[in-house]
Write a protein that binds this DNA or RNA. Structure first.
Ligand SMILES: [Mn+2]
Ligand SMILES: [Mn+2]
Ligand SMILES: [Zn+2]
Ligand SMILES: [Zn+2]
Lengths: 147, 147
DNA sequence: TTGTTATTGAAATTTAATCTCAATTGCAAT
DNA sequence: ATTGCAATTGAGATTAAATTTCAATAACAA
């Protein structure tokens, strides 16, 4: 069994929940997408494979996958959720282009460390974080921006 | 006229839009709240003062206020938008408690500088950013968190 | 004034997400 | 195996935020 399935099953058992066929299929589909995805991406892909899993179950399972630490919600600027893997992918944050919508992933250890220090200062126990820088990618830098 | 009204009017004129009484009232109400707020907060407060402004106009005006750089959307974990002032308030980011919902504001110059450097590395022109650290505040730190 | 164009509010619509509930399934204890 | 119980599922209803539509109105430049 793959690492993500092991971890999900462990989480579910711990909570007195079941690792059902539906949950396994959703997990596999989610981990077959190596990019940001949304609920409907999963729904469409599963149905193309004749897995007739309801949207309700996908929503419910994604919540569990986030709680178990396998996925995280990515803020995209759009008004519905987007997700990406945690397990098997190094942590990163995002630059978002306001014009073309491009998403650039970056990571910076010093920022990560300073965040830890901020949390220490406040006695805060971090579980997760999201840093999103919004602006214009190098292709789209024109006269945008009002001041 | 207050600074925020001047700036909003300037922005509107530049876009060929009008600084209407409704927009002025919404702006004033938004700047009278010195905390995070949501659309319905404005709607209720305006109606308590017998300003019968529609929700549609509030939504439309908040979009303009964000575009003009007077307000920004705060990510709150909830699934509707929250806003806060930019003009007249020093930039900060947020710690969010998963248990009690508390929002702690912090600012860290070194993180801000490192963000600028990241943007330079990518030729990205930042307009705005949001850093949200999710976890447990010092009061709520118990046995939460699965690994 | 006058004419053009932006703006508004009310209601309809869209869309994501959640909830309800009866039927089904997983699973642990016999 | 059989049984019983609690968790799970899917279909459809529901909720709630946000957006759109459109006719009436208001802003403002000519
Ligand atoms: Mn990513
Ligand atoms: Mn704040
Ligand atoms: Zn771009
Ligand atoms: Zn707390």
């Amino acid at each position: 069994m793959r690492a993500e399935e092991k971890k999900f099953e462990k989480y579910l058992r711990l909570c007195g929940l079941r690792f059902t066929p539906e949950r396994r299929l959703i997990l596999r589909e989610a981990f077959s997408i190596h990019d940001h995805f949304e609920v409907d991406d999963l729904f469409v892909r599963l149905h193309q494979k004749d897995c007739r899993i309801s949207r309700a179950t996908i929503y419910r399972t994604l919540d569990l996958l986030v709680k178990s630490g396998l996925l995280r919600e990515v803020i995209s600027g759009e008004r519905h959720s987007h997700y990406e893997h945690i397990l098997g992918h190094r942590h990163h944050d995002h630059l978002l282009c306001l014009k073309c919508g491009k998403v650039i992933e970056f990571s910076n250890n010093r920022i990560e460390e300073l965040q830890k220090r901020v949390c220490e200062d406040y006695g805060f126990k971090p579980e997760n974080h999201r840093l999103q820088i919004i602006g214009y990618c190098n292709r789209c830098q024109l006269d945008q921006g009002f001041t």
